[in-house]
Amino acid sequence: MTALGLLYPGHSAEDDYPRIEQLLGSDIRIDLVHTDIGEDAHRVDALREMGTPERLASGVQELRHAGAEAVVWACTSGSFVHGWEGAQDQVRALAQTAGMPASSTSFAFVHAVRELGVGRVAVGATYPQDVATLFADFLRAAGLDVVTVKSAGIAAAAEAATWGEPEVLALARAADHPDAEALLLPDTALHTAAYLTTLEKELGKPVLTANQVTVWEALRLTGRRVNAPELGALFTKEPLVQV
């Protein structure tokens, strides 16, 4: 049994994770601990506060007791708003506190894009434009080519959590670009686990979503690879040779 530890802010789309666990169809357990979201606002100051070391550390002990082998801060905006260097500092502090390998959803997107072997991506963000732009800047700092960014202008995670398949598909279509080799939907408050195959069939390219890449990143940290086609192209790729 491989136990994956996730720190998830508040309560929005956490029910994606039991679905993903079921779709993995293997000896994988996802242990999820909720962290204090503070003010539910897609605003830079609120997002930075949400990912402070103190808030993240509060859930680590529970994950250790559950036997987690790696921990991922399951929040995109609560990591990339700190910038590339700040997000690295956040993950390093989390790993030190937890005593195990650590990452965040922002870095999960970068690693997942590299795993797919693509360089040009489109972004469909629920966030307001200024926050969506910060995510694009984070990806560019990783050497990725962001060809377009579509903002839905949602002000809070609670609103994103109300979206169903029609809204998610509409955002994906609006954000897609002919030059993009993959589409990224970066909000762990957005339900996407049930729509991955539909999204990829609709767009004809890999689609990476926040909760999907978060679990993939936790598996990567533990050295596990699981073939799960219902979770999209990311979970069917053969491992790339790392140079």
Score class of each variant (00 low, 15 high):
Leu208Val: 02
Leu184Trp: 06
Val215Ile: 03
Thr188Asp: 00
Thr162Met: 15
Leu208Thr: 11
Asp176Glu: 06
Thr162Gln: 15
Glu165Arg: 15
Thr162Ala: 15
Ala172Lys: 11
Gln212Pro: 08
Leu219Trp: 11
Ala160Cys: 05
Ala182Met: 09
Asp187Trp: 03
Ala170Leu: 03
Thr192Gly: 08
Ala182Glu: 06
Ala182Gln: 13
Tyr195Met: 08
Pro206Leu: 12
Thr192Phe: 14
Pro178Arg: 13
Asp179Met: 08
Thr198Trp: 10
Leu184Gly: 13
Leu185Ile: 15
Glu202Ile: 14
Pro186Met: 09
Ala174Arg: 12
Thr188Lys: 00
Leu203Trp: 07
Thr209Cys: 06
Asn211Ala: 01
Thr209His: 13
Asp187Glu: 06
Asp176Ala: 13
Arg173Gln: 14
Lys205Ser: 04
Ala193Ser: 12
Val215Cys: 02
Asp176Gly: 08
Ala193Asp: 12
Tyr195Glu: 01
Pro178Thr: 04
Leu196Gln: 15
Ala193Gly: 11
Glu181Lys: 10
Lys205Ala: 04
Thr188Ser: 09
Asn211Pro: 12
Leu219Met: 01
Glu217Gln: 15
Glu165Cys: 08
Leu219Lys: 05
Val213Glu: 04
Leu190Gln: 05
Leu185Met: 15
His177Arg: 11
Val213Cys: 05
Ala158Ile: 00
Thr214Phe: 10
Glu200Leu: 02
Pro178Met: 06
Leu221Phe: 14
Thr162Asp: 13
Thr214Asn: 06
Ala175Ile: 01
Gly164Met: 10
Thr162Pro: 04
Leu199His: 14
Glu202Leu: 05
Thr197Tyr: 05
Asp187Gln: 05
Thr209Ile: 00
Leu183Thr: 02
Ala172Val: 02
Glu159Val: 10
Val213Ala: 02
Asp179Asn: 08
Leu171Cys: 08
Glu181Cys: 07
Leu169Phe: 03
Trp216Lys: 08
Ala193Tyr: 05
Leu203Thr: 12
Val207Tyr: 12
Asp187Ile: 01
His191Cys: 00
Thr209Pro: 13
Thr188Gln: 00
Ala170Val: 00
Ala182Cys: 07
Pro178Ile: 02
Gly204Trp: 13
Glu167Met: 01
Trp216Asp: 12
Gly164Arg: 13
Ala218Trp: 10
Leu169Asn: 03
Val168Lys: 07
Ala160Trp: 00
Ala189Asn: 14
Asn211Tyr: 06
Val207Ser: 09
Val168Met: 02
Ala189Met: 10
Gly204Asp: 11
Lys205Asn: 04
Glu200Gly: 10
Asp179Gly: 07
Val215Tyr: 02
Thr209Val: 01
Ala218His: 09
Thr197Met: 11
Lys201Met: 02
Tyr195Phe: 12
Asp187Pro: 04
Asn211His: 07
Thr198Asn: 11
Ala189Asp: 09
Asp179Cys: 02
Thr209Asn: 01
Pro178Cys: 10
Glu165Lys: 15
Pro178Leu: 09
Ala172Cys: 11
Lys205Pro: 10
Thr192His: 04
Thr214Ile: 00
Ala182Arg: 08
Glu167Gly: 04
Asp187Thr: 06
Arg173Cys: 11
Arg220Asp: 07
Leu169Ile: 02
Asp176Phe: 05
Ala158Val: 01
Leu190Thr: 00
Leu219Arg: 03
Trp216Ser: 08
Glu200Phe: 07
Glu159Thr: 03
Val213Phe: 13
Trp216Leu: 14
Gly204Lys: 14
Thr188Trp: 01
Glu167Leu: 01
Leu208Tyr: 11
Val168Asn: 10
Leu219Val: 08
Leu219Cys: 07
Leu221Arg: 10
Asp176Leu: 04
Thr209Gln: 10
